[in-house]
Design a binder for these strands. Structure first.
Lengths: 242, 242
DNA sequence: CGGAATGTTGATATGCCTCAACTAAAGTGG
DNA sequence: CCACTTTAGTTGAGGCATATCAACATTCCG
C-alpha cells in the first residue's frame, strides 16, 4: 500500500476527513525509508527530530534505556501508527524507537505538518487523537505491569496486540505477527525471561495462546480475554464526532 | 489565584501565547467547582465528558478500577494540569479521576475549546503539548513500576512529584504536599501497603526522604535522585519554539 | 470516650529472580 | 554439505523480595 493510503486509512479512524483534507494529505512530501535489520534504531533517546514517522509496513517498538543498560519496552506500533508524533511538540526524545523486523516507515517534516494543522485543523485533531490513544495504551500498561501477574499479564498483552494488529490489517482470523523474543517479552512486561518462558508455557499447555517464531496464535479468545481481564474500551476504536 | 491566571501560567509553559491569545483565554466561560471530600470522584470510568477540567487548587489523581475492585492509581495532577484533556477527542473515559483532598477545579466546555482551537491554533498546540507531557509521564511510570524495585521505585516517584509540585508552585524548598495514604502509595506503585510502609521506613532511616501526614520532605535530594535513577528529561520542562 | 482509619511490626508462604546447565534452531564459513 | 558458532528457548535448583495474614499501635474525629 502507498504511504498516503496507509496514512489516510488511519486518520479516518480518528476524525472525518473530507476530500479536500485527503487531497492535502496526498500532497505532503514524505521520505520513505526501509529498515532491514531487526533491532535497528531509527530514533534515539536524546534526538531532536524534525520530522514525524509513520509506520507503513512491519512493527516497531518504543523503549527506555535504563542506567544499567537494560531496556524497558513501552509499546509496539503497527502500520498506520505515528510512534514519534510527540516529537512535534516535545523537543527531545525521552525514549528510542527500533524496528522489530523488516520495516518501512515514511517521514513527514514537522514544518509541513504544522502548516497543514493551521490550514486544516481537523488533520491536527486526528493526529492529536492518535497521540491520545497512545496515552491510553500507556496507562493500560501501567496497570497491566503493576497489578496483574504471571499469565494474566501475558494474556492482557496478547489481547491488546492481537486487536491492534487486526485493526491495522495485519492479522488473520486467529493469529498475528508478534516479532518478540522471550527476552524482549520479559523486557516489555517487566518480568525475567525465565518467567516469560514459564507463563508462555502455561498458556500453551492450557490451549489459550501460543507465541512461536514471531507469531501469536490465539487458541481460545474467550479464555485469553478472561484470564487477562481484558476490556478493549481503552483502545477507543469508536470514532467521535468532531 | 484566578482560574484564568492558573490556566495562562500553564499554557505559557508550553507555547508562546501572545496578548490576543491570552485575551481569548480570559474570555472563556468556565464553571468553578469545589470538592471538599478527599476521595471524591469528579469523573468516572465510562463517563462521556462534554467539558474539560483544569486543576486550580489541590491535587487530583487518575486511576483504573480493576475487575476485583482494586485500584491502580496512574498519575497525580497539580494546579494548572488538565487531567481529562483527552476527553476532547476520546468519547468515553477509560479511567476515573478523584480529589486527593480539598480541591478547586474549573471546567471549560469542549464546544468553546474546539472553537478556540480553530481560531487560534497555538492554544490547541499548547494543550496538545500538555497531553504529550502526560503521555511521557505515563511512559516513565511503566518503566518505574516495571523495572525498578523497592526503595528505588519509591525514590523515583518522589522525585517526580516533588519537581512537578515545584513547577506548579505548590512546593517549598525541600517539601511538598503529597496527600497519599500508604495504601494509596502502594496502589500507585504496584506494591502492597506493607511493602510501601517498609520501603518508606528505609528512606526515613537513611535520611533520604520522609512522607508523613500528606507531606513529602526531601532530606537529601542527591541521594533520592541517585537511588531512583531519576532524570527529569521526560518532564519536558524546556519550551520549544513553535 | 469510643470507633474508624491509618500506620507499624512479625511470621509465613510463595512467586519471581538469578544462576547455571543444557537443548534446539539458525546462521556462518571452510 | 557439514562442523562450528551464535542465538533463542527450556529446565532445575536455590534464595530473596514481596505478598498475605494477623495482631497491635497510633492518630484522628465525632
Amino acid at each position: 500500500m502507498a504511504p498516503s493510503d496507509v496514512l489516510l486509512r488511519k486518520l479516518k479512524r480518528h476524525c472525518p476527513i473530507d476530500d479536500a483534507d485527503a487531497e492535502a494529505i496526498r500532497h505532503l512530501r514524505y521520505e520513505v525509508r526501509e529498515l532491514t535489520e531487526a533491532g535497528e534504531d531509527f530514533i534515539r533517546q536524546g534526538d531532536k527530530p524534525t520530522a514525524a514517522a509513520i509506520v507503513i509496513e512491519g512493527i516497531v517498538a518504543r523503549y527506555h534505556t535504563l542506567r544499567s543498560g537494560a531496556r524497558q519496552y513501552l509499546t509496539l506500533h503497527y502500520p498506520g501508527d505515528w510512534p514519534d508524533a510527540q516529537g512535534l511538540f516535545l523537543a527531545q526524545m525521552d525514549h528510542s524507537i527500533c524496528a522489530m523486523g523488516p520495516v518501512v516507515i515514511c517521514s513527514v517534516s514537522h514544518e509541513q505538518l504544522m502548516k497543514i494543522f493551521k490550514a486544516r485543523p481537523i488533520i491536527g485533531f486526528a493526529i492529536w487523537r492518535e497521540t491520545l490513544v497512545d496515552a491510553a495504551i500507556f496507562r493500560e500498561s501501567i496497570t497491566n505491569n503493576s497489578s496483574r501477574r504471571g499469565a494474566g499479564r501475558l494474556a492482557h498483552f496478547f489481547c491488546e496486540q492481537f486487536l491492534r494488529a487486526k485493526v491495522a490489517g495485519v492479522a488473520e482470523a486467529d493469529a498475528c505477527p508478534l516479532p518478540l523474543s522471550q527476552t524482549q517479552l520479559g523486557e516489555m512486561l517487566g518480568m525475567s525471561l525465565v518467567s516469560a518462558n514459564r507463563h508462555l508455557q502455561t498458556l500453551r499447555r492450557t490451549r489459550i495462546a501460543d507465541l512461536r517464531a514471531g507469531r501469536l496464535s490465539i487458541r481460545s479468545w474467550a479464555k485469553l480475554v478472561s484470564l487477562g481481564e481484558f476490556d478493549d474500551g481503552y483502545l477507543h476504536q469508536t470514532v467521535p464526532n468532531v
